[in-house]
Nucleic acid binder design. Structure first.
Lengths: 145, 145
DNA sequence: TTAAGTGCAAAATCTTTGCAAATGT
DNA sequence: ACATTTGCAAAGATTTTGCACTTAA
């Protein structure tokens, strides 16, 4: 596994050992700029990593705040690296995603700011996730041609 | 099963036959004012309904737009009846939920309006789901006492 | 009457657990 | 060297499928 200083650093920061499977997962996730489902990850990683190790890696990464889960429209779980802002202090508290109902891809739209909401009295807000579903630009283009 | 005209009407409107299992599911879901997980539903329904029938009922209801899925923080799927607005034309296109990280309940905050969002060019929006996580009023009270 | 819906059994999937071997520090 | 992490096998859960029986219209 070729060294990627960023990834090594990321693992060290979270008191995780630098291992091949973990680096592979990070490598795949950074390549794709969207959230990836567990089955897709499994396929992308090929036989580089055991299925069980993948499960464990994903749950470790989630605990540590290295990645976050997103629920796709079809009910599949998708995983995405938290944005750089995320990994800094504790955890970025806002996530905006777009789920294309045609290609099923889940895009991270972390640039988008979630507007202020009027939460009912007595409720304390810690985290906000916003999922927009529809058709992504690629699929829109493909069909309008 | 005691007749609830509303429920019967709901089923008829969607070309579904009025059956005991379906009415039981509707009865339970209307009682609880929050989203309910499949395992919880199973427990609440007791032996009134086969597990397989529950799966099938839920997926039928979801297809027809009678209820919608919500993803809880812990990764469990929760089901909630769509608000009345929902069942009318086709499908209400905005859902706001609150997931308490202590009691794990998922509240439907369908009164809340989601502010306008600036979706990137080329993307078409069909549906917006917003999930707020934090601590609900009951749990807040319980701890502040 | 007859198409839709149910319930059981069994298959297929998905996820977790236990433990010995391998690996990173 | 020692604690962590991996990979395999197997257990446990969850979800789906097939099919005969039942039920609503």
């Amino acid at each position: 596994m070729q060294a990627n200083p960023q990834h090594n650093q990321l693992l060290v920061k979270h008191n995780l050992k630098i291992t091949t499977p973990r680096l592979s997962v990070l490598a795949v996730l950074t390549t794709r700029e969207m959230a990836t489902s567990q089955p897709d990850l499994e396929q992308l990683l090929g036989s580089k990593i055991d299925r069980v190790t993948l499960y464990r890696t994903l749950s470790t990464f989630e605990e540590k705040g290295i990645l976050h889960k997103v629920m796709g429209a079809n009910g599949t779980l998708n995983y995405a690296l938290c944005s750089s802002a995320c990994t800094q202090h504790q955890h970025h508290d806002q996530h905006v995603h777009f789920n294309c109902t045609l290609c099923l891809n889940v895009y991270c739209l972390d640039k988008l700011q979630i507007p202020q909401l009027q939460i009912p009295d007595g409720f304390t807000t810690k985290k906000i996730d916003l999922m927009v579903s529809g058709v992504c630009d690629k699929c829109n283009n493909a069909y309008s041609k």
